[in-house]
Design a protein around this nucleic acid. Sequence first.
DNA 1: GTCTATACAGAGATAGAC
DNA 2: GTCTATCTCTGTATAGAC
Lengths: 213, 213
Amino acid sequence: MGRMNQLTQPRPSFKAQMHQAREDAIVAATSRLLGEKGFETMTVDEVAAAVGIAKASLYKHFAGKDDLCAAAMVHVVARLQRFLDALPDELGPVQRLQALLHWLLQLQLGDETPLLPERNSALAQTLRGCDLYHACMQEVSARILAWIAQAQAAGQLRRELPPEVILCARLARAADPMLPLLRERGHDDADILAWAMDSCLGGLVARPAAMLT
Amino acid sequence: MGRMNQLTQPRPSFKAQMHQAREDAIVAATSRLLGEKGFETMTVDEVAAAVGIAKASLYKHFAGKDDLCAAAMVHVVARLQRFLDALPDELGPVQRLQALLHWLLQLQLGDETPLLPERNSALAQTLRGCDLYHACMQEVSARILAWIAQAQAAGQLRRELPPEVILCARLARAADPMLPLLRERGHDDADILAWAMDSCLGGLVARPAAMLT
DNA sequence: GTCTATACAGAGATAGAC
DNA sequence: GTCTATCTCTGTATAGAC
């Protein structure tokens, strides 16, 4: 019996591994196409073609386009979680937040799935009903909020803004229209990245000058 | 002949006026639906229904959905131009820029067509080929760039950022994902507006603190 | 120029053999 | 579980009468 178990139970079995691998490939392809073309424009046929399987096979893994794309979004959040996990312990809160911003901006410049669904996309509606997605987002939000609170306490982030606002301001950079706008005008990704970080963190008005009216 | 002219030429004739009025109504409805639902989700049937005419009649005015929505986008830019025209002469460049930002943010909060097409929307591709749209955008960009240059010269805007970057940073606020994000979390539009302006102009890091790494 | 009715295409989803 | 072939629905666009 023990030997049987070793052969059948110990790990997912080749079949299950294949299954999982294919599912991962599907999610990866979806994630890429979602970033390149957006939810409405992307088609399930394209995903199937990209993976190299038939569309019907895809529907054995996922209930529908919504389901598929929700999984892709969860995949992106999971990547973010792993990134946050991998941050060196010696980094302070501000440095962590800066690294996060850098990561989000690079993600968009790489034409990958943005962390946030596009405004008014049907995907946004779907995600509202996806508990797994909300749980992941909740987890990363809590972690980031803690860093923000620390940075504010240390006087490194502006205290006038609620932590939640700073959180949203950061996350929103993942889909900032400024990046495509500058790219369209022919700038290098490296420049765009630097400007985006600078304008987000430092703002637009001059330093010692008058505050808002 | 002169009298004939007075009767026939002097103004568009009732028919033409009706035509123009209907066309305006179509564009207005399109603009609203475009803001509410986005290009891909919005349907021509909905526009026709909103105006109260048959879809076929709509196609007598516009060649297709692309054409229709391009007209709507031009309409939005034209509104922006009128807003800029109406700014009081006594306002300085910084105040003008601030008013502009306020206007753009309010536009988005009102669920109207954002000044910029959504990322990866088919509309963006269409607009690339629309000379009228580019001409309008070029005109407003030039005007705003002039104010930015003045404000930078006066030390009121950061000189480290190229004027073009500041321009894009402003315009991009018209489609900033931060607004929907904060709204989803249950905040008032007034608060969101204030936070968006503050974080855009003043940035996130504390004032006298260390610069970027 | 406006309508009703319809053609046409694309994409999501499924049936049924293997 | 995967495939090929097909269904079905939705949405763009047009034909043709008035």
